[in-house]
Amino acid sequence: MEISRERLLWAYERMRLIREFEDRLHTDFAAGKIPGFVHLYAGEEAVAVGVCAHLGDDDFITSTHRGHGHCIAKGVDLRAMMAEIYGKATGSCKGKGGSMHIADVDRGMLGANGIVGGGPPLACGAGLTARLKGTDQVTACFFGDGASNQGTTFEGLNLAGIWKLPVVFVCENNGYAETTSPRYSVSGQDIAARARGFGMPSIAIDGLDFFAVYEAAGEAIARARRGEGPTFIEAQTYRYYGHFEGDSLKYRDQSEDAHYRALDCLNRFRTTVIEQELLSQAELDAIDAQAREAIEAAARFAAESPLPTAADLLTDVYVSYPAAGLWPFQEVNR
């Protein structure tokens, strides 16, 4: 599949931004700067970027608890993301959502999601909107190998299939649902095969290869735009860090980690584009430096941003609701 120089530069920049963003969070979490839980996407960059390379601002994505990569690939503002993860008022969600709920609906990013399998039904709804409004918008639905066992995923596949919705299901099989391998949890062992039972094209690909993802997603998204219905892609990938930060990783071996790091998607991208003389080493190095600066600036912005205040506790629950109803049985009506 053809890809322009501009798109290649964009893809490498997005992948590098994701890597730098996640590595920075890894460090900042260890330093005690990040409240709560973070689930890092490092290692899986080729999937989010290979898919989102075919999406515009008007297209939609649904995401997962491991959603930073999807956000960055869809173009969500880095500073707002970092501030959100720091729990700051300047965050994407004013500090009310945190890492697991970063969203930017105006950019078609319908939210990271703390519920495994929460996204597929939502993606069908976004697909229904496109269909009823007669647009060619496509929804990419990211989920993991864990969610491939959830009923909501099967219900979403079924709805998208019978209604021919413009949804591309992207299963990021990163080898572990928390500590549990699909070798244990997936009956039949073949996630991609499951989707074929719903009557849609389905393919398993090397998710560590940007170009493989780019090609498969390109075909799937073009098919959806043509109104030919959903496609399923199982992207086989790997997460470098644990399920969440602070994970002891006692469920996998060092040798496995080394095996996958040797297949690193960013390194492979670099090797390919340099060998094929598509981009120069200097261009790639310049992107690396810019990405480091951008993430440093985002982290500085987050650290220096103000915290939410007490007034923020009671806003954004509803579009409209009586104020007294948000803290009932108080003295206000006495």
Binding site: T62, P121, I162
Partner: peptide, 28 residues
């Protein structure tokens, strides 16, 4: 039938689709 839409008996699926459609511009 597009606007008055029968669903399969899959409440999670179509309820979630209602939420997703509402978030993206329909009033389901």
């Amino acid at each position: 039938r597009e606007r008055v839409r029968d669903t399969p008996i899959t409440e999670s699926g179509f309820m979630g689709a209602g939420v997703g459609a509402a978030a993206t511009g329909l009033r389901p």
